[in-house]
């Protein structure tokens, strides 16, 4: 009897400890956001911007793009880790398995940090491994290697977003796709925007139609309410649709 109790206790303990270890390694998702900046490397405007786009895309297509930053993977394989997050959190639609996870670490030392883009089966056709590798090379690495973390995520995110939106023929609000080579200086771009704004302002004055169109690229949710982003929040977080992944993706060290 006593021996059995001991045995039971040992087995039970081993089981509990085992569970404890896996849980410690796997971060828990936060509610109401697609951007999980556990490593604290992203500024609030960047997080809000990316979260806004993910929310629009999720509401429009059911595809979910999530961003996760971590200090360290504690030696685990980056792609496998990302695949497990997609599966455990259920990123993407349950039927379509169309989740994307952009994950990077920042506490493993320069040259040893992992960055990985992992996709569910539903998007493997639009985002094959080779393409994801190219996106990491052209959009993530150039900025991350010079410390522009926010920019690295913005450009990488924009590339992924465009591809997913294209896959679903979704023409909602899209993030700017920044060219890696700066073919157009920023001031030219700003000047163009100002000119466009002036033209819009003048042309709408005549008609008297649209009330104070401020040239902001429309948040679909805010047009009726006039409350700005507060209105689109109402649409709510549709995250964690129960999507899975077969392990597609690409990774780099940086």
């Amino acid at each position: 009897m006593n021996r059995f109790t001991w045995l039971f206790a040992i087995v039970y303990f081993a089981f509990v400890v085992n569970i404890g270890v896996t849980q410690a390694a796997m971060p828990k998702p936060m509610e109401n956001t697609y951007i999980h900046d556990f490593a604290n490397v992203l500024s609030t405007p960047v997080k809000d911007e990316l979260n806004h786009y993910s929310e629009q895309l999720d509401n429009g297509t059911g595809a979910e793009i999530m961003v996760v930053t971590l200090d360290s993977l504690n030696g685990q394989d980056a792609k496998m880790f990302a695949t497990k997050i997609i599966r455990e959190w259920g990123i993407g639609d349950k039927e379509k398995n169309n989740g994307v996870l952009i994950l990077a670490t920042f506490g493993q030392g320069e040259g040893n940090n992992d960055v990985v883009i992992s996709v569910g089966q539903g998007l493997e056709g639009a985002l094959p491994d080779g393409k994801l590798g190219r996106i990491l090379d052209s959009a993530f690495y150039p900025y991350a290697s010079t410390g522009e973390i926010g920019k690295a995520f913005q450009t990488t995110y924009a590339e992924v977003f465009q591809t997913v939106a294209q896959e679903y023929n979704w023409d909602g609000d899209k993030p700017e796709q920044q060219e890696a080579d700066e073919s157009m200086p920023t001031w030219v771009f700003i000047l163009l925007i100002i000119i466009v704004l002036i033209v819009i302002t003048f042309s709408s004055n005549g008609g008297g139609g649209g009330p104070r169109s401020r040239g902001r690229r429309g948040y679909p949710g805010s047009f009726g309410g006039g409350f700005g982003s507060g209105g689109s929040r109402g649409g709510g977080f549709g995250g964690f649709g129960g999507g899975s992944s077969a392990g597609g993706g690409a990774s780099r060290k940086f």
Partner: peptide
């Protein structure tokens, strides 16, 4: 080489899929 990098990405991705499967 772009082609080589793409192939290695595909191979590494396949390895991960294999591990999952």
């Amino acid at each position: 080489d772009a082609n080589f990098r793409q192939l290695m990405d595909e191979l590494a991705g396949t390895e991960n899929r294999l591990a999952v499967a």
